[in-house]
Design a protein around this nucleic acid. Sequence first.
DNA 1: GCAAATGTTGGTAGCGCTACCATAAAAATG
DNA 2: CATTTTTATGGTAGCGCTACCAACATTTGC
Lengths: 343, 343
Amino acid sequence: MKLRTRRGGGRPTIADVARLAGVGAITVSRALREPERVSENLRQQIQRAVDELGYVPDHNARALASARAEVFGVLVPSLTNNVFAEVVRGIYDSLSDSPFRVQLANTHYSGLEEERLLQLFLSQRPAALIVSGIDQTASARKLLEDAGCPVVQIMETGPDPVDMMVGFSHLEGGRAATEHLIESGCRRIGFLGARMDPRSQRRLAGYRAAMEAAGLFDPRLVTTTPVPSSVTLGRDLFRDALAKIPSLDGVFCNNDDLALGVLFECHRAAIAVPQTISICGFNDLDMMQVAFPSVTSIRTHRYEIGRQAVAMAMEAIGGSWPQDRVIDLGFELRRRESTDRRH
Amino acid sequence: MKLRTRRGGGRPTIADVARLAGVGAITVSRALREPERVSENLRQQIQRAVDELGYVPDHNARALASARAEVFGVLVPSLTNNVFAEVVRGIYDSLSDSPFRVQLANTHYSGLEEERLLQLFLSQRPAALIVSGIDQTASARKLLEDAGCPVVQIMETGPDPVDMMVGFSHLEGGRAATEHLIESGCRRIGFLGARMDPRSQRRLAGYRAAMEAAGLFDPRLVTTTPVPSSVTLGRDLFRDALAKIPSLDGVFCNNDDLALGVLFECHRAAIAVPQTISICGFNDLDMMQVAFPSVTSIRTHRYEIGRQAVAMAMEAIGGSWPQDRVIDLGFELRRRESTDRRH
DNA sequence: GCAAATGTTGGTAGCGCTACCATAAAAATG
DNA sequence: CATTTTTATGGTAGCGCTACCAACATTTGC
């Protein structure tokens, strides 16, 4: 005789629903997962039983039995960086009405940490993986290739996707920003960079390409640090750069936080923007258009990258990989007062 | 005869480890979860087998068998709001070396959404729940009370915790900011508020209390909107407020984004800060101390709230509830140039 | 009208792990 | 030294669900 000592707390199971609806357990399971394979009649009957009992499927049992979890693994290098926060929001929003859950983890910009987390994720057999950047370590890349689920690399584009990619070219972004500064009349344009992760490196490469093409490159114009980005750091880097090169007449900042720090420092030191120093940021946070003077920046589509990554993964889960495995969402230069030197 | 057709992809199981180590499966399970209950001898033998096979326990099977998941459910109203991003980072950092995973979800400031997500979380039998604020709907509160796991309410303190709490008093924060503005010589102090979630409401209540105590309150000084906060919105609210009350000589902003918008608008309109208008923000983001002029704000301990919430939950999971069920981490007024009217 | 094809339902046997109890060995007790 | 207590290990029986196959209807084709 089976006692009713459930180890779990007595939540209704699929068997309870089946009993109430007068059908087999497996039919309930099917009605919930592939409704079109169950007759209209039974489907309604089962739905009534589900509602009456307040049945909720057990994720863990489902994952165990089907050997795959309804989980999207998401790896980002930072949770507080505004840029990734937006991407993550796009991912969550896209997935909120699906049966999929998000498993988010923070690599702290470390390849080794990414590897470790990937291993952890894979032990759950996720439905899809979303990872940041294209510079995975060799073994991380191997893990991704053997993941057995769709993989989307986000934030950047490159020639050799593990599976799928959505992002934009940081190199071209850096180049466009620098070219704009050159066109607007600057000659001694500094590059300020914090953190200097691979994406920052490529923006720097874009800066360098543009400067060299114009015959303006000088390594002393480049000021970088591995320290994480902040507005405070923007001020400090700018002071350093100005001390090195007093004739500076423009700066391209790795990101908008730095640019804001530069702007404030210019106010404090009574340096005219854009007349004496022009400023260009990167990412185009909301505040840039409100700043005084408003700050030119490269608009990137973070939220959209998150949405698109989920959309691509969903297609792949459905079996039909999207025809374009690499989607370049591009960027846009937003010209504002901080680089407008016309009088 | 048992064929070796594993439905799963052939990852080693606890039985494989047991076979290789020459022990029973349950002993392996024990060696991994409660090492002190297994002899030194076998423990090492088992560890060797684990390493050799690269065995990783299956979360889902474990959760199913033990009827509880090693998951912290975390509910926040926003993923992009800097304040919550910091809290979430504190939570992730505290949990990264534990066996616990984080299940994060976004309520979008909706009580109903919170209820729905809570239900979803509870179906996983989480090890602990961390929820934002103290204004759960009645049924959400019921769910939390019956959750059968430690519950920590974060960001605020209040008299009646579901289980545990860590945060600070937004009312006192609002009062302190307002009193500071009054002391520094302002009389016509506006309140600018966006979103106006319960925490914003309490900051407003603190503002009102301080203004009434000084005989300065005037409802026309209050300008709020349900629209989400942004720097742009700060500018717009400030313009509205100034149009209503041209004699305004100070503003207390709901948060730092708004304060920044006000600061920029003052620059643009050539309004002297702090002489004509003093500005006080809330949260003390990094940028406030770099701004020009630097902006007075209420420093809150977001990261620490995340850490402390996890620490409390961990204690409770360990069976010993902390003696203080409500921890007030307080706040600090950071006086800066934007409210310094001395000449 | 009958065979084959199609559609619908259910039973059985796990998925990988742990709770619970049983057992054997070692230590403590008087 | 016999007996109780403690410690260390293992076996069995699920946790709640789904893959796989079997068993029927029900339809279709000729």
